[in-house]
Simulated assay, not measured.
Amino acid sequence: MGGKHAKLEIPELNLAVTSPAESESIYDDFSAESLLAHWQTLRIPFTESMESLSERQGYLRLRGNDSLLSTFEQSTVATRWRHHDFIASTKLEFEPTNFQQSAGLCCYYNTSNWTYLAVEFDEERKRRCLRVMQVDKQAVSYHFYDNESIEIPDDVRSIWLSVHIEGLTYQYSYSFDGKTWQKLPLVLDAWRLSDDYIDGRGFFTGAFVGLHCADISGFGCHADFEEFSYEPTGG
Rank of each mutant, 00 (worst) to 15 (best):
G64V: 06
T169E: 09
E24V: 04
H83G: 00
G234N: 12
Y142S: 06
K137F: 13
F94W: 08
T18P: 03
S70M: 02
H5L: 07
Q100K: 13
D196V: 10
R192I: 00
P185W: 04
H164P: 01
I159L: 06
Q40Y: 14
A118W: 00
T115M: 02
P45V: 07
R127S: 12
T41C: 13
R127G: 09
H84P: 00
R125M: 02
Q134C: 09
N65Q: 13
L117F: 10
R125T: 07
C107V: 15
G64N: 08
I159W: 04
A78Q: 11
V119Q: 04
Q57T: 07
D29A: 15
R63A: 06
T111E: 05
D146E: 15
A16D: 09
L211A: 04
Y27T: 11
T111H: 13
S75A: 14
F46S: 11
C107L: 10
I152W: 11
H38D: 07
M133D: 08
F86R: 02
K7Q: 12
S70L: 03
I87R: 15
Y174T: 06
T115F: 03
V163W: 02
D122R: 07
S217D: 11
K183N: 04
F99T: 05
E24T: 05
C221D: 08
H5I: 08
D146S: 12
N147L: 05
I26S: 06
S173M: 05
K4R: 14
I165K: 15
E24C: 02
G202Q: 10
V77I: 15
N65E: 08
K137T: 03
L42Y: 13
W181D: 01
E9P: 00
A139Y: 12
C213Y: 04
T90K: 01
G220H: 08
I87N: 06
L92A: 00
G178F: 07
K183S: 00
W39I: 08
D189W: 05
S23Y: 05
L42E: 14
Q57N: 08
I44C: 03
H212M: 03
F86K: 05
E33Y: 07
D136N: 11
F46I: 09
G206Q: 07
L161Y: 09
S162I: 00
